[in-house]
Amino acid sequence: MRELTLIGIGTGNPDHLTFEGARAIQRAETILIPRKGDQKSDLADLRRQIIDTVAPDCAAKIIEFDLPTRAADGDYLNNVDLWHDAIAEAWKAAAGTAETAALLIWGDPSLYDSSLRIASRLTPYPKIKVIAGITSLQALTAAHAIPINDIGAPFVVATGRQLRDHGWPKDADTAVFMLDGNCAFQTLALADYDIWWGAYLGMENQVIRSGPLADVCADIIETRAQARADHGWIMDAYLLRRRT
């Protein structure tokens, strides 16, 4: 590949795509769509729906490819490193002889997405173009109609793994957590926090919950498990704020 375009597509709602992102899809010569197994086929289908919505006469060659899986056992960071190598090779194999290609990236490539790190492993290194997208952080606060921070106050964005392994972020009153498959918020002193949680944000099947963590913790865990069983996949995020 001579050029690779990473297009932020928001959280799956075609309305989240910017005009710039829509134009990039309309002009693309090759679009790569990863497959994550039959249970997550909706993710590939959603990408195709976005393409059909913004570029119904799209002339791009659409190539689906199987995304490598990450080893579950052993050192986490080493497994991620090897996994990223494998994904870079999968991109190259899928693109074949195409000189330019595009990938549709959930949310925005800048926030808890490794596409840019994976792209850096491509040889020869292509020209990279990034088109910003709406993040789950923005979609979450919009769904609940709340600001993310208090006046003049900082906030932290982290993963569920960080909350589980290291506890509440130091010197923070507000934090947003992503990529949390185990509901790490239940490890906290529930009475000390309020939560704003959402899944499938901005989509037709969006579901949100909010309130004192002690009151809604069990409901969120149950709702999340049922939603994942119903759809075969889930993308969610939540904001926690210390109670004062």
Rank of each mutant, 00 (worst) to 15 (best):
I151E: 12
D81V: 00
L111Y: 05
S120N: 13
V80G: 06
I63V: 15
R164I: 10
A172Y: 03
A88P: 06
A94N: 08
L104S: 09
T159W: 10
E64Q: 14
F177I: 10
W168Y: 09
I62S: 07
S120V: 12
Y125I: 10
T123F: 08
L137G: 06
D171R: 14
V156H: 09
D180A: 09
S110A: 11
Q186T: 08
S114M: 11
E99G: 15
D108T: 12
P124K: 08
P147D: 14
A55T: 13
A95I: 09
T135G: 03
K61T: 14
T97N: 11
I128S: 03
S120R: 13
R161I: 00
A145Q: 15
L104N: 10
E99H: 12
L137Y: 04
V176K: 00
D75N: 15
T187M: 11
I105R: 08
A189T: 05
C183T: 01
H84E: 01
R161Y: 02
G107H: 05
D108A: 04
L103H: 02
E89Y: 02
L137A: 14
D113T: 11
K170P: 03
E89K: 13
A153T: 04
L179N: 08
A88Y: 07
A72Q: 14
N79L: 05
L140C: 03
S110H: 05
Q186S: 10
L179G: 08
Y76F: 15
S110C: 05
D85Y: 00
A119G: 03
A72N: 14
L122P: 00
V80I: 14
D66S: 11
A153F: 02
A71E: 14
C58H: 12
L163A: 09
A86K: 07
A95C: 13
K92Y: 00
I105T: 13
D113L: 05
A142E: 08
P68H: 11
A175H: 02
L140D: 00
S136H: 03
S136I: 10
M178V: 13
L103S: 00
P169V: 01
I128W: 03
W91R: 11
A93P: 01
F177Q: 02
I105S: 08
P56V: 02
P169S: 07
A60Q: 09
A88V: 12
N79H: 07
R70F: 01
C183S: 12
A55P: 13
A191P: 04
N149S: 15
C183E: 01
A59K: 13
G133H: 10
T174V: 15
W168A: 06
L111R: 07
L122G: 01
K92S: 10
T123P: 00
N149Q: 15
A119P: 03
Q162C: 07
P169F: 06
T187I: 06
N182F: 12
K129Y: 01
G167A: 10
A60C: 03
I87V: 15
T123Q: 05
G107V: 08
V156I: 13
G74Q: 07
W168V: 02
G167W: 11
H84A: 00
A93W: 03
M178A: 04
L163P: 06
Y76G: 08
R121V: 07
H144A: 06
S120D: 07
